[in-house]
């Protein structure tokens, strides 16, 4: 039995696993220089029993080892490993308890909220935000289920509906429109009718609506691009220069807020997603005018986001540089909610 051939490997293993590598090195080297015949270990060399040297002891000449000694070494190694395992389990449990006792940030633990924001930043930095969602044959389109009644007051009168638009640049096409002053902020805006929206280029698309609950439905939509809308009415810019949605979108304020007329539901969008070519101000679904339950007279369709961002019955569109409040983000969901 020539155990010495194993020694270099034992040494390597010890280093790899960090188990008493130093002690082992010394012991291993000593053994290698020792002639085969001197099988009996020098009693004076008997290793001191410390946590790190369990392996080193059994690396020595083996013929003198008794079964009892092997068992003792096994116990020492087991004990140490189970102590480490226990400490690790305790550490993991403490970490879990710590995470779960953090303050809430918009209804979820702040470390989770921060992670959602990191995930958002990675998506915005490394994904192509203009990538288009897949489109489907119109024959596959069906009615999506009616989901969510937030902001859908029953006493709404579609006949008197006007879209309010805020956050427009003074250079935009706003001068000729119906001006109003927002009673809340004193800000000047314009109001538009559905005919104004319909004057903009009409776009039809068949895309999948992905609800955050997990269901999805292919739907045919018709409406006008929010980017065409922005190009016509001109969001306010960071530099104060005239807005150029097509050539210089980076200069626009960074967000869009959309709210129902009663402000019972509201979503916030990052500007790149708002200006995505498939983001529509939509007035038709599956070839028919929008039904009240699906958001008549005007809703948002944004296939690069979960259904929660596809706000029905838009009352107000606001271009802003403040990250807008978002109904479901305030209730624990991801603000970005991007696909």
């Amino acid at each position: 039995m020539n155990d010495k051939v194993e020694l270099p490997h034992d040494k390597e293993r010890g280093e790899k696993t960090g188990e008493g590598a130093n002690a082992e090195d010394r012991e291993g080297a000593a053994v290698q220089t020792r002639p085969v015949s001197s099988a009996n270990p020098d009693p004076s060399k008997k290793p001191v029993e410390t946590a790190g040297d369990a392996v080193s002891k059994i690396d020595g000449p083996l013929r003198g080892k008794t079964e009892k000694e092997v068992l003792r070494q096994a116990i020492i190694r087991s004990r140490r490993s189970f102590l480490v395992a226990g400490a690790a389990a305790l550490g993991g449990f403490t970490g879990w308890r710590w995470l779960n006792s953090r303050r809430l940030d918009d209804d979820i633990l702040w470390p989770l909220r921060s992670t959602l924001q990191v995930n958002e930043q990675l998506a915005r930095d490394y994904f192509k935000t203009t990538r288009v969602a897949p489109t489907f044959p119109p024959s596959t389109a069906k009615e999506p289920r009616i989901n969510g009644t937030e902001g859908m007051d029953t006493d709404f009168d579609p006949a008197s509906w006007r879209l309010r638009v805020l956050g427009l640049s003074e250079y935009g096409g706003s001068g000729t429109q119906n001006m109003f002053e927002d009673p809340g902020t004193g800000e000047n805006g314009i109001t538009l009718g559905l005919e104004d929206i319909k004057q903009l280029p009409r776009v039809e698309m068949v895309t999948e609506l992905n609800c955050i609950e997990g269901w999805s439905q292919v739907v045919q939509w018709a409406g006008t691009r929010l980017s065409d809308f922005a190009a016509k009415y001109g969001p306010v810019t960071m530099s104060g220069a005239p807005p150029d949605v097509e050539k210089n979108p980076e200069d626009l304020v960074r967000y869009v807020s959309l709210e129902t007329p009663d402000n019972g539901y509201y979503v916030g969008l990052d500007m790149p997603s708002a200006l995505h070519p498939q983001t529509l101000l939509c007035y038709e679904m599956n070839g028919r005018p929008l039904s009240p339950a699906h958001g008549a007279p005007l809703r948002l369709v944004i296939p690069v986001k979960y259904g929660i961002k596809n706000i029905k019955r838009i009352g107000t569109i606001r271009f802003t540089d403040q990250r807008p409040a978002d109904y479901w983000a305030e209730r624990g969901y991801d603000w970005y909610a991007g696909h």
Binding site: M1, H9, I58, D59, L62, R63, K65, E67, V70, Q73
Partner: peptide
Amino acid sequence: FESVGSGMKKI
């Protein structure tokens, strides 16, 4: 598969 010890049991 290095293994060490002798006698009836080994690690």
